[in-house]
């Protein structure tokens, strides 16, 4: 399905949930926070967050800052 992840629209194969997406992207779920169609997915709920065609996903993490 097509997803817009961090502003880029891409085709993803064989993914159903946010957890699947993170694995595909090589990201450890505990290091990021995910916003799915402008709703924050609470950590630990990635498995039950189902994705659908055209969804917007923001994957965010802490970086250095003052």
């Amino acid at each position: 399905m097509n997803l817009t992840v961090n502003g880029n629209t891409k085709l993803f194969q064989d993914i159903k949930t946010v957890t699947d997406l993170l694995i595909t992207l090589n990201l450890e779920p505990e290091t990021v926070v995910v916003e799915h169609n402008t709703t924050i997915i609470q950590p630990g709920s990635f498995d039950s967050a189902h994705l659908a065609e055209g969804d917007q996903v923001e994957i965010i993490r802490f970086v250095g800052g003052g």
């Binding site: 992840v5 961090n6 880029n8 923001e58 965010i60 993490r61 250095g64 800052g65």
Partner: peptide, 8 residues
């Protein structure tokens, strides 16, 4: 710390 989009 700051929050940013993950650099994919």
């Amino acid at each position: 710390v700051a929050l940013r989009r993950v650099n994919l």
